[in-house]
Design a protein around this nucleic acid. Structure first.
Lengths: 310, 310
DNA sequence: GCCTAACGTGAATAGAATTCATGGATATGT
DNA sequence: ACATATCCATGAATTCTATTCACGTTAGGC
């Protein structure tokens, strides 16, 4: 009969001691006296049958068991905290918060188009967007850090569900006066003398590389990285380099910047964006509604593309 | 300043009420009086600001918030429980338990070869093997249900690390007097009139299908599923069907059963088995030691194969 | 309509967590 | 080397919380 000994409380202590560096500092954080903490720790260590810290002089050093519990704390406490926020929203008559993770930079622009109408249809749901994940998008889904994942790279696994939401073409973006601006398409050789600007992500995640440059074993003379789409395109418009982005995105900026999209490779680079969630959440109404709306916005986009290219 | 309101305790209550069906039954499970539970629930509901159950007559019905918390309980409580077991092992001077998940049936035989020597080298580590996962092997790794995953189907993602541990050939196994026993190799057509025996898993996970039958769009006249390797091979030896297994596995059974391995397809079906773990755990000594040992056992196997085929 | 099985409530109590007051140990500065 | 500040441990006192006990209420079965 293993009675529960580890409480949320204890995890909170582990984390506070780690953050504060000392018992006294941790006590402050937890709005307790140092004495209270000392007692509480001693009791926990007794119940567990092993020390969690080694007292070296007046320094505390985590034992193996302590490190293990600290890892547990860092894993579980955020889930408690998010649950409390979520329940609080339920209590206020809200449906909850939809946490969307993004694994593809330019999708942000597309997401904005979906989120707008969505917030209108679901006034009781909040939306939050996250872009950095410690363990990747899939890990974030499994770890309940996000509820929905926008990614070009789906993964059909038990427990997860992915649905394609829209197709697009990845194109090269050049200044309208650029020597390549009127090419039918761009080869790897064409890119060699160029300054290529991309988001700061691994080369394997950049389609220009995986589809064009790496197969031809060619590198551009210079490769710069920039965080934001706007600045990237300003650089391109100023003739300071070229970049690769979705065609629909370029078309939007084209109206106010002198930039031109050009097909990449002989056949073009076709891409697909997927929306994934945990299978369990599939019947959560406000979540499936987002997926549905996302596929509908895709149709609008296709219509928009047709309008612009005619 | 959102003070902690949800405690492990509360999750325990949620789960017990669900399991027992009533407050009174749950109280019994928790070794408490019904009154205590009632008080505790009322306080929790007050703090959360929303009811967790609707009292319909003398039945309890979970509200949305209640369902949410129940899901949280089912997710977090097992982690608390496992942590307590783990710490208990630390306390006894043990290093912990290595939980190995298996996504490929015949690997079990191979795993036994690794586990034996491993237990010898690491007397302070316990090994546990799990074969069923609610959310697939990857989900089990991310969800900390297992620490190590044996799979033919790796997934290089941030947060996870996979290493190949051995290669093998998937072959058809037939009775030694079988009409196909002396073929150089087996085509999809050859399999059509046969009774095919496999493990009870999805067709997409069976290499005979994905590599041979599905591409040729041919199905065997009959497909039976059997859980255990031994019985499967007994059936084959009795001439009651054919099956597909790793060549090294067949060679072991061949000594005491009249069965024969035959190459599948013109080029044979080459497979690789991977061992995966969470990146964070990479520097856990007893875990990385297992991986190292696993790759060494592979070498022994190759030697063994050479010995048998010469 | 009465009996049973369920949950709720308030006061009493047992038990934990917290504080207060204090002491010992270890770095830090002069 | 000595004073001093910092940090953790301890025991007794206290405050706070969880639990029980005893009773009340309500819904459904016969």
């Amino acid at each position: 009969m293993g009675r529960s000994v580890i409480e949320r409380n204890h995890l909170e202590v582990l984390r506070a001691v780690e953050a504060g560096g000392s018992l006294t500092a941790a006590a402050e954080r937890l709005h307790l006296t140092q004495s209270a903490l000392s007692h509480s720790i001693r009791k926990l260590e007794q119940q567990l049958g092993t020390p969690l810290w080694l007292r070296e002089g007046r320094q505390l050093q985590l034992t193996q068991a302590g490190k293990y519990l600290l890892a547990l704390a860092n894993r579980l406490l955020p889930q408690f905290e998010h649950a409390e926020l979520q329940i609080d929203q339920f209590a206020r008559g809200q449906a909850g918060t939809l946490r969307i993770g993004m694994e593809c930079h330019p999708c942000y622009q597309w997401l904005l188009k979906v989120v707008g109408p969505y917030l209108g249809h679901w006034p009781t749901v909040d939306v939050d967007v996250k872009q950095k994940f410690q363990f990747g998008g899939i890990g974030a889904l499994f770890g309940h850090d996000i509820d929905l994942l926008v990614t070009p790279d789906p993964l059909h696994r038990p427990g997860l569900v992915f649905e394609p939401v829209f197709d697009y073409e990845q194109v090269l973006v050049v200044h309208s006066g650029h020597r390549l601006a009127h090419n039918d398409w761009i080869s790897a050789q064409d890119l060699e003398p160029e300054i290529l600007i991309t988001y700061p992500v691994a080369v394997e995640r950049l389609d220009v590389y995986t589809h064009l440059l790496l197969p031809a074993n060619i590198r551009p003379v210079r490769h710069k990285t920039i965080e934001t789409t706007d600045i990237m395109l300003q650089m391109v418009a100023a003739g300071r380099g070229v970049t690769a982005l979705p065609r629909w995105l370029v078309q939007e900026y084209q109206q106010r910047m002198s930039i031109v999209p050009v097909q990449l490779g002989e056949t073009g680079i076709g891409k697909q964006i997927f929306l994934g969630c945990r299978e369990r959440d599939r019947n959560v109404d406000y979540l499936s509604a987002f997926m549905k709306l996302a596929t509908e916005v895709r149709r609008d986009d296709i219509a928009l593309d047709a309008g612009l290219t005619n």
